[in-house]
């Protein structure tokens, strides 16, 4: 009886294995269809509009707007700025990503305290954070621009190398690295297939569609949040916002995605 049952289970398992590839293909297609539909009418545009208002709104002790903020292409130049970030900034002597640069502008131009400006970097659906709006606006200005992140400066090169090492650095209670999920093809979390991010084939599309609006929780998510949450999922200690480590990891992914036309802010399931 037991043997009979086992063989029945085995037969069922064999069937499941045989059916799996066909199924996976269909599911992938269906998910792609769904993602396309989402992107067609994405509320991310509303975040861009609100971000523009915030960009132009005088704030802080100096009662200044961010319109003179230099994101690497000159003060106030937004077109294509995100496609070249992270980059080395001579005025701070460090490599900065979009979010850390925005905070730098809040501190220098608006005269705000660093602690106050970074008090609430990740918002929620009821109350998105100031940075989430600003990021949506700024990255939207790079839509269609090819990602071209430089490693010419020695500090940029160093950040890229550090990022590459961090990507493969295994630690934490689960002994995970970014590469545990994003370094091998065919991995997934539930229905979400995971791109291989240390290869241009996987990094290009993914990097070019972040930051993004998450439909499932109605929130605009920044790239700093993406990294922060990846580290949470790996059960690492929480990375510090705008730290050299998070910027380095962004640098590594951005350089790997070089050449792709930026298509964000994206829309995710």
């Amino acid at each position: 009886m037991l043997a009979l049952r086992t063989s029945a289970v085995l037969a069922a398992a064999a069937l499941a294995i045989a059916a799996a590839p066909v199924h996976a293909q269909d599911e992938k297609k269906e998910i792609e269809k769904y993602q396309k539909m989402l992107a067609e009418g994405s509320p991310v545009e509303l975040f861009e509009l609100q971000g523009e208002d915030l960009w132009k709104k005088p704030q802080g002790p100096k009662h200044a707007s961010l319109e003179k903020c230099d994101l690497g292409m000159g003060p106030g130049v937004l077109k294509g700025a995100y496609a070249h970030l992270p980059r080395y900034f001579a005025d701070t002597g460090r490599v900065m990503d979009l979010e850390s640069r925005l905070v730098h502008c809040m501190v220098t131009l608006q005269g705000r305290d660093y602690k106050e400006a970074t008090k609430r970097v990740f918002g929620n659906a009821d109350k998105p954070s100031e940075l989430e709006y600003l990021v949506a606006y700024v990255v939207g200005k790079s839509r269609g621009v090819r990602i071209a992140v430089s490693t010419r400066n020695p500090k940029e090169k160093a950040a890229y190398e550090l990022g590459r090492q961090l990507f493969h650095y295994r630690a934490g209670p689960w002994d995970f690295s970014c590469g545990s999920c994003h370094g091998v093809a065919g991995k997934r979390i539930r229905m979400q297939s995971l791109p291989v991010l240390d290869k241009p084939s996987g990094a290009r599309h993914t990097y070019a569609t972040w930051p993004a609006y998450r439909v499932s929780n109605s929130q605009m998510k920044t790239f700093q949040w993406r990294l922060n949450d990846c580290y949470r999922q790996m059960r690492f200690p929480e990375p510090t916002f705008g730290s050299d480590a998070t910027v380095a990891l962004t640098m590594f992914l951005a350089v790997t995605a070089n050449g792709e036309r930026y298509a964000g802010p994206g829309t995710k399931r």
Binding site: E40, G41, S42, P43, E45, L46, Q50, D126
Partner: peptide, 8 residues
């Protein structure tokens, strides 16, 4: 016609 609206 496509319209986006901000609303909780």
């Amino acid at each position: 016609i496509r319209v986006l609206m901000s609303h909780p």
